[in-house]
Amino acid sequence: MADERTKQVGAFLARQGILVAFVLFMIGFALANHRFVAIDNILGVVRSSAILGVMALGVTFVVISGNLDLSVGSMMSFSTIVVLDLHDKLGPALAIPAMFAMTLALGALIGFLVGYLRLNSLIVTLGMLSAIHGLTLTYSGGKNMDIADKAGTWFGGIGRGSVLGIPGPILIFGLLALVLGVTLAKTPFGRKVYAVGGNGTAAIFSGIPRARVVFMTYLVSSFCVATAGLLQASRSLGSQNTVGQGLELEVLAAVILGGASLLGGSGTVFKTVVGVLILGFIQNGLLLVGLEFYVQYVVTWIIIILAVWLDVAAKRGRILSPIA
């Protein structure tokens, strides 16, 4: 009986190891600094994680289908700069759809290259990271972008306002997570994403249009990036060309922390949200216990390695294994 229970606990730990580690971290930080669990701190962490989180939602689709997207950071800079620029030229009501269309076009290009031409996603999106950065600099002439009349526009309301006390970014992150979570878990499209990532050949042999599914995952990803760019632009009303730089790795870290396999075929939107929050709270906790901001880059890396190692160790049943 007791033996049975130990086994169940073991199985639970293996499945939910990340969540357990997260709770332990939280308790540790809370003991070290009681500010950590203050409501305004928690809300602050969630709000500042929201932009990263929105991007991670899209990348979850790409990773489950068995590919990578390293272009999201640079693409987010692009959409932020574009929407800020167009805001003054076309007005916010036209600027937003125009920016979405341009960002989706970039996603479609990646989707075409990876899906239909079957090029390696690492190479394609790493190249796009650089190419889109160049595009953004060309577009802006290398200058920072600012909205001229910051007081006279409703545009800032999206990123700065709140509904029923819930800040706009959190609301949009939550809504998008819900919609995309249900899409992935419950619709035929979601099922096909898992199938293509689980075994692309078998998916084709089952009559699933692999290329189209991969194409669609990059559209979803670029839609999320456009939303993140909108939130970023609206919150700051002005931006540098490099606002999204380095975010692609943090996004990937959050998705992996959530437990999606880089080999494709597994992961969920809910797990990614958990991954985003873990990353946000750990970075916040490190600041509160008095570590310098720059230390975070190193600590983030260590956390990723730990997460991946725990995941692999749970699957093979021991910590150090002579085989794979």
Partner: peptide
């Protein structure tokens, strides 16, 4: 295994 099934499903 490689063409007929998605083993992780």
């Amino acid at each position: 295994k490689s063409q007929g099934l998605i083993l992780g499903m």
